[in-house]
Nucleic acid binder design. Structure first.
Length: 830
RNA sequence: GCGAGGGUGGCGGAACUGGUAGACGCACCAGACUUAGGAUCUGGCGCCUUGCGGUGUGGGGGUUCGACUCCCCCCUCUCGCACCA
């Protein structure tokens, strides 16, 4: 292709995009402040980790968000659309060590590079609000929040068995352990006893669960995942007396109706009473060995999911308080110490695990809940029965329906004082201590005289030390004596700083609130600003954050509310979880070698084309299959629009008023224009299905193209063409902002396209006057008729019966009935 | 095992509360313009059939004048949780 050709039939995206980006960034066009005269709209995309360069997933995420932001601006909202960096985390340390630099250097360089990349995409952020979470101006407030939470009792310290990743040299939250391996490096995780800091997220479990019902703008999938994660269950906690001992073992069950079917008890290897139980046992050693084996097995459970059920008799019995029976106590490998009470009443007839265990160790099986019309024989049963039925062998409760019996048995236990109703949650407190360098220091001091003391606000931030000798940039804080040594804020004596840093999920749990007042120097949040902007109206990001990040953010929002900073209960009113960008059927990743670099695409096609394609190729919530040819198609469309404008530029210098009596071509284009306004608006408003919005605009362009040109018989009037083009550009502008703005001015407008109102459809103009009515015979399409829109049913029936094509299929047979669906079809049943 | 969401041309995907299945785009085919085209424009394009027509939304049944859409059973793919008592 020659240079001249290229110039004449393709728009010069490089010049155009650079020009508008400069205008937007330098002019601070997207800066916003609170304005009570307008309705606010806060749209936020999950902020990125500054890993080095953006990838296609970012492009997709931010393109979606930018369309929403620009669309809402055109609709007259006061739109907050900020961007920042989730800047603490392990990759910075790894990269720093590899390149012999400092994590801060690496991180800030990446931020600079990636900010530039985002700007090259033409994203309409208020850059004045940019935050980087590794900046002391940010984490100072996080530290303050931590101390306030400590004073409120939401933060506490405890020794626990933690998940330790040797490779990353840090503790992981349960949520960060996947199949027994570290979520980051995939190395096996080991248990380790450690003192650490925790958030009492379990205190909020019930509210976090209840409020999910208010989140009607969230995908069901995410709601369900959160519900399951919180894992509420209600049941009976019941005391079993240990025979001949002054000990009680409590069990938790959600099936109190089966309590007469208990034939043994299983307890966890870590159960606190275990030592006492086996103290006098003859097989003490055997039991001890077994316990150790189980503990090791638990550590190793990594990938092989279905370990065989194993257990050993402790030598002791306990008494079922309902029937006085003595049942043997077993240690079993499948009982979890961290859930319920660490002890389970075993009902093999009605629990799959207990059944398997009983069969293996030849323990009795006693059915007590018999489903309607069935019988159960313990000797021949092949699996546990978990369905409702009526009770047998259950003392005074025999004959009751099992659902009713649950309540009756619970009430009985409460009445007798050996049991009570209990609610348990799967959710556990959030351990936030990390032993890594590149994180926000936990602002606490350990004093020999005064115990643990929070660092007072005047001494915040506790700055992460950067002044270390070369080569030790990533030294964890506990290896830095100069950092540790401090004075007790209470008594002034020598004391030691806490050396753990905070889980990086902390920073992302409240950044959305900080964006309302990112430079506020008095407190974490400027209250009037926060109450103006929050909650986030539309949050957009990957579904991989469905549990952790979103749950923690919801938790923090409630904490911030309880600390008096916020007035909302939930952070994100609407949530859009966008699908992954995939290529050749799998996620783009370096290891698979199928990554597409956004930089290359922007170079080759320009930002608008890349944005357009990523919006067009799939609806946002679905995975997007990358296609190089598809990008080509998006580029082609924009160039077609460009050529049409350039070829008709003279024509557009005409009065704006649409003439009364339009030619057929003019009428068609005018109608299509207004139909397209309806369709595009509807697609965006309803579910952000930009793919159908774009296809609608392409259809409109196809009509425009057919009605523009030399053929006078076909062509639309100039005013209609002008209207169509103006509308098309405004509709396109949220998606391809540089192109739309440039073309807007090219067709003779002096103002910015961003100051245009979103077009409003003229319903009369959009209305079809000729309809295609389908004629069916017995539900099969046999003919089509062009009729005017106002034909009545009788006329339509007559026309259908008279239609030659249709007659062939009726073939003289008697007509049973004729169904007329307005504006759609006539179905003749014979 | 439990939970959620999918399965529509060669491909990405359309189809509103049941009412013309396959919009729009890609790929492909034919033609035009061209010295040339991997540019652009025009037309075609689910499958079977020469045609009339038949058939078709994972499979099977059902409801209905009419089903991608509603109901029942099954297959399959993706994701999440996974001994939670």
């Amino acid at each position: 292709m020659t240079e001249t050709n290229a110039m004449s039939n393709r728009y010069d995206f490089k010049t155009i995009e650079a020009k508008w980006q400069t205008t937007w960034v330098d002019g601070g066009v997207y800066r916003v402040t609170e304005d009570d005269s307008k309705e606010k709209y806060y749209v936020l995309e999950m902020f990125p980790y500054p890993s080095g360069r953006i990838h296609m997933g970012h492009v997709r995420n931010y393109s979606i968000g930018d369309v929403v932001a620009r669309y809402k601006r055109l609709r007259g909202y006061n739109v907050l659309h900020p961007m920042g960096w989730d800047a603490f985390g392990l990759p910075a340390e790894n990269a720093a060590q590899k390149n012999n630099t400092h994590p801060a250097t690496w991180t800030y360089e990446n931020i600079d590079y990636m900010r530039n990349q985002l700007q090259q995409l033409g994203l309409s952020y208020d850059w004045q609000r940019e935050i980087a979470t590794c900046n002391p101006d940010y984490y100072k407030w996080e530290q303050l929040l931590f101390t306030e939470m400590y004073q409120k009792g939401i933060v506490y310290q405890k020794v626990t068995t933690v998940n330790w990743c040797e490779s990353c040299k840090t503790v992981l939250a349960n949520e960060q352990v996947i199949d027994g391996a570290c979520w980051r490096c995939d190395e096996e995780v080991y248990p380790r006893e450690m003192n650490g800091w925790f958030f009492k997220i379990t205190d909020y479990a019930e509210e976090l669960l209840q409020d999910l019902d208010t989140l009607t703008g969230w995908p069901d999938k995410v709601i369900t995942m959160q519900k399951n994660w919180i894992g509420k269950s209600t049941g009976l906690e019941c005391d079993f007396q240990v025979e001949d001992m002054d000990h009680i073992i409590s069990i938790f069950t959600t099936r109190p109706d089966t309590i007469f079917g208990v034939t043994f008890m299983s307890i966890a290897a870590e159960h606190p009473l275990l030592d006492a139980l086996i103290k006098d046992s003859e097989d003490k050693t055997a039991v001890r060995n077994f316990i150790e084996e189980i503990k090791v097995e638990k550590q190793r459970k990594s990938v092989n999911d279905d370990p065989e059920k194993r257990g050993i008799f402790t030598g002791k019995y306990c008494i079922n308080p309902f029937n006085g029976e003595r049942v043997p106590i077993y240690v079993a490998n499948f009982v979890l110490i961290e859930y319920g009470t660490g002890a389970v009443m075993a009902v093999p007839a009605h629990d799959e695990r207990d059944f398997e265990f009983a069969r293996k160790y030849n323990l009795p099986i006693r059915p007590v809940v018999i489903p309607e019309g069935e019988t159960m024989d313990p000797a021949t049963m092949e699996e546990a029965s978990t369905v409702p039925g009526s009770l047998v062998n259950s003392g005074a409760f025999s004959g009751q329906d099992s659902i009713d019996a649950q309540k009756a048995i619970l009430a009985y236990a409460e009445d007798k004082g050996f049991g009570k109703q209990r609610v348990t949650y799967r959710l556990r407190d959030w351990g936030i201590s990390r032993q890594r360098y590149w994180g926000a220091p936990i602002p606490m001091v350990h004093c020999e005289n005064c115990g643990v003391q929070p660092v007072p606000e005047k001494d915040l931030p506790v700055v992460l030390p950067e002044d270390t000798e070369a080569g030790s940039e990533c030294l964890p804080l506990h290896q830095r004596p100069s950092f540790i040594a401090t004075a007790c804020p209470q008594c002034g004596e020598a004391a030691q700083r806490e050396t753990d840093t905070m889980d990086t999920f902390m920073e992302s749990s409240w950044y959305f609130a900080r964006f309302a007042s990112p430079r506020h120097t008095e407190s974490p949040l400027a209250k009037p600003k926060a109450s103006y902007w929050l909650p986030v109206d539309q949050y957009i990001g990957g579904v991989e954050h469905a549990i952790l990040h979103l749950l923690y953010s919801r938790f923090f929002t409630k904490v911030l509310r309880d600390l008096g900073y916020l007035e909302v209960d939930e952070p994100f009113t609407n949530l859009l979880t966008q699908g992954m960008v995939i290529k050749d059927g799998t996620k783009m990743s370096k290891s698979k070698g199928n990554v597409v670099d956004p930089n290359d695409l922007i170079q080759q096609y320009g930002a608008d084309t890349v944005r357009l394609f990523s919006l067009f190729a799939a609806p946002p919530e679905r995975d997007l299959e990358w296609s190089a040819q598809g990008v080509e198609g998006a580029s082609r469309f924009l160039n077609r629009v460009y050529r049409l404008i350039m070829a008709n530029i003279a024509l557009l210098d005409c009065p704006a008023e649409i003439p009364k009596n339009l030619s057929p071509g003019g009428k068609e284009l005018h109608r299509k224009t207004h139909q397209t306004i309806q369709r595009v608006t509807e697609s965006i408003e309803h579910n952000f299905h930009f793919n159908t919005a774009i296809s609608g605009m392409m259809e409109m362009f196809n009509v425009l193209s057919a009605r523009t040109g030399d053929d006078q018989k076909q062509a639309a009037e100039p005013a209609v063409i002008r209207e169509a083009l103006s509308v098309l550009l405004v509709l396109l502008s949220p998606m391809v902002p540089h192109f739309a703005e440039e073309m807007w001015q090219t067709i003779g407008n002096a103002d910015s396209i961003e100051d245009q109102p979103w077009p409003v459809a003229d319903e009369k103009a959009a209305k079809e006057d000729l309809l295609t009515i389908v004629i069916q015979v017995n539900g099969k399409v046999r003919s089509r008729l062009q009729v005017s829109a106002d034909e009545d049913d009788t006329r339509l029936t007559q026309m259908a019966h008279d239609d030659e094509n249709t007659k062939k299929f009726i073939d003289g047979k008697p007509i049973k009935k004729t169904i007329v669906v307005k504006k759609k079809l006539v179905n003749i049943v014979i």
